[in-house]
Amino acid sequence: MTQKLSAVPLWQDRRFRGAIFNFFIYAILIAVGAIILLPLSWMLTAALRGEGETVFTVPTSWFPTESFHFENFARILTYESYPLWRPTLNTLFLVTLNVIGTVLSNSLIAFAFARLRFPGRDLLFRIIVFTMLLPGAALLIPSFLLFNQLGWYGTYYPLWVPAFFGNAWSIFITRQYMRSFPRDLDDAARIDGCGYFGIYRHIILPMSKPVLTVLAVFTIVGVWNDFTGPLIYLSNSDQFTLAIALDYFRRSAFSTMSVNTTNLVMAASLLSVLPILILYFFLQEYLIGGIASVGLKG
């Protein structure tokens, strides 16, 4: 021991330097983690404040330690002037339709591009890749003009019908995944008397569950959080989704409710954040894996 110490000074010892290095890594990781988590923790603290209690304490209370008014969540769901249970159900309705549409349409389309031969396939696929470059916001007004002409303004149609017609990015990642299965599978199924739809339904679809889960999770998160679409197409506050209802609630809370309703507004914000967070914790591999694959395609 002493021999070793005399041979190598402490600051040159590999293990010692490793420990110092790890200490700094953890210090930064924890600092960044705190910057991300503390605002959310403050949201919870504020959401659990009782009526008349101040939300903005000096110094800031980051953690819920004294007030635990869980009834706030029930209150916002059934609030007299603007109950949030309805927007919550509306959002769930849209999420469900979008998930069904996305999984169904993109798996069918991607199956053909991945497993079948047909004239024009490569050209059509190149068009799909090209449309991936088009930024979503560029289509905001163009789509509005079309849906308005169709008389779909003030209805849910613009917010779910397009999901049933495929989406470039989803087709792309699903096709990449479906291409990775061996060709023999299709041939074996065909010998067993499977038609093309049978191959899709019984062979490829079950094997594509991971990538379809990625699509589903992204759709859930995207539709649940979507602000622009509902903002543009919905006119009646009975139709509002949670994202716009939340802002609507905040504004009306400020103008009509009692002086300090920040606790209720924070409870409402938490209502819109919490289900997605729970989903994220259970399915994070799919979400992060999906995001990573987008980046890698370059």
Partner: peptide, 11 residues
């Protein structure tokens, strides 16, 4: 680290 990417922009 990834949490902010999934939570609602409005909230």
């Amino acid at each position: 680290f990834y949490i902010p990417a999934v939570v609602s922009g409005v909230a």
